[in-house]
Nucleic acid binder design. Structure first.
Lengths: 218, 218
DNA sequence: ATGTTAAAATGGACAGTGTCAGTATGACGA
DNA sequence: TCGTCATACTGACACTGTCCATTTTAACAT
């Protein structure tokens, strides 16, 4: 997998070789700050990602980030956009070639989110901290939209019964996935297996929902 | 409805009339701080609930709360416990007398959570801020357990098919409800109606899940 | 080569925060 | 009456985000 911070690194290097805007002392401090922010995020959690800590780790003055991010909120939003881009890439890759197998596609989508969240919990949580990031940011919204429209396209190819409001289904899937992850990361329950199917619980609850969507009585 | 901060007020008044412990200048500063905290929470959101702001609004020195809460985290946890107690009362009341109608009981449980969250979004969000509150706090855990066991009791009375792992079902319901609320409060989508059933979307997604739980194919 | 210019980086300052240490207050039991 | 001790107070510290004036820097025009 090529994650978005690396590809962004390549872009930064190209930019450095191409031209450096006036007064720019580092190669690309903005990207350097985002990279340090991600490191701090993974290690210390969101609270550790302060403007001053990021500046310290990048080796610049505490007020240097202000030239690239007007506020801490803006900095966290930029980091979140990178994270969301990674998640979008992963989910889209997971559901490709499964357009004609909607139930598998939905499970693959969910499984990708689960794995991403449990592997990098702090990154996942950052995505949903409305207090700290700007949900209306265009770059962030674009990445979120990529995930959502991928999910919609799966459901569009799979109208096997009379239920046709695929937005409702998409929201149901999103809600289930996000709700389970949130509560797991909050420690409200632990990983366990369904005692009937012997599947991991996060798979089992998705099965229930998928059955409800595709084999609905009313 | 009698919410828990009022009943706690009555207790505080009784205590004030009964006796005042040594050095206590206010009637019951701890409860007064929680009350001011709730007001700040509703108006300014979680970020506004600082130790110093609460102390200011209660008319005491900035370090007075330290005698009752060892940290801001502890103060927010105490507030969250009150909020969760309210939610527990509401949900339990909603599902009483519906033990033999499990599908209605589940919808009633969900609807109560939806209403609570949309009426008092800041209070609901506080409950799930793992960064800011102590999920392992006994008082908080007790109230959360009340909600969860109520949901379990509904499912226990309603094993209409071969699916018997009611914990999986309870977690699925909780996850769906919490996930939808979280994303709505985050502004990821707005209130809308299912275009097929003309039901509010939060009702529609619960119907899908309930169908999946009770009319599951596999 | 030599200014010019504008972005970028700097250091200092300010108000706000959580938390800790030391001190005063006041009700209670001896 | 005198300690005792929980409570509340003042003061301080380190840290934060953000603003400000200043200086540095690199690209550009001359």
């Amino acid at each position: 997998m090529t994650n978005n911070i690396d590809s962004v690194n390549m872009k930064a290097d190209m930019k450095l070789k191409q031209k450096r805007t006036a007064g720019q002392k580092h190669g690309d401090l903005r990207m350097e700050l985002i990279r340090e922010g991600l490191i701090l995020l993974d290690i210390q959690g969101i609270e550790g990602v302060t403007i001053r800590a990021v500046a310290r780790n990048a080796g610049v003055a505490h007020s240097a980030p202000a030239n690239h991010f007007p506020s801490r909120r803006a900095m966290l939003t930029a980091i979140a956009a990178i994270v969301f881009a990674d998640l979008a890439d992963l989910t889209i890759e997971a559901i490709t070639d499964l357009a004609d197998k909607p139930e598998q596609a939905i499970q693959a989508f969910a499984e990708t989110c689960f794995q991403f969240a449990f592997d990098t919990p702090n990154r996942y949580q950052l995505l949903w901290q409305r207090q700290l990031i700007d949900q209306d940011d265009p770059a962030l919204a674009k990445e979120m939209e990529r995930v959502y429209s991928a999910l919609l396209s799966v459901l569009r190819h799979a109208q096997v019964n009379h239920r046709v409001d695929i937005e409702t289904d998409a929201i149901a899937i999103w809600s289930m996935v996000h709700g389970y992850i949130s509560m797991r990361l909050d420690g409200n329950f632990v990983a366990a297996e369904d005692t009937v199917t012997n599947l991991p619980r996060h798979k089992a609850i998705m099965l229930s929902l998928i059955d409800g969507i595709y084999y609905r009585k009313s």
